[in-house]
């Protein structure tokens, strides 16, 4: 069975569910390397997003690494790195 992959679309879906989107921000634009802060998400919104990802994918994200993941690219990489060993174990 192929390991689950966490994509930008997954992140956008979860961001919208948990925190909505700031006015004037287009999540469908080229946002991979844009700071979350610039996208209108403060630390609490990212905490909520991290919690939702953990629940949906059955993983635990490292708290320090979650705080340091300040762009969609970095957060997607963190989630996939956390998913990979879990996938191998299964």
């Amino acid at each position: 069975m192929a390991a689950t992959e966490f994509t930008l679309d997954d992140l956008k879906r979860i961001l919208l569910q948990g925190a909505g989107a700031a006015e004037g921000v287009d999540l469908d634009g080229d946002i991979l390397d844009t700071d979350f802060e610039e996208l209108g998400y403060e630390s609490l919104a990212l905490l909520e997003t991290g919690g939702r990802i953990e629940r949906e994918y059955g993983i635990r994200l490292d708290e320090d690494q979650l705080v340091e993941a300040d762009t969609p690219q970095a957060l997607i990489a963190l989630v996939n790195a956390t998913l990979a060993p879990a996938g191998q174990a299964a």
């Binding site: 569910q17 909505g20 989107a21 700031a22 909520e48």
Partner: peptide, 8 residues
């Protein structure tokens, strides 16, 4: 209200 505010 903006969608950023509703879930919180």
């Amino acid at each position: 209200l903006p969608s950023r505010l509703v879930p919180q």
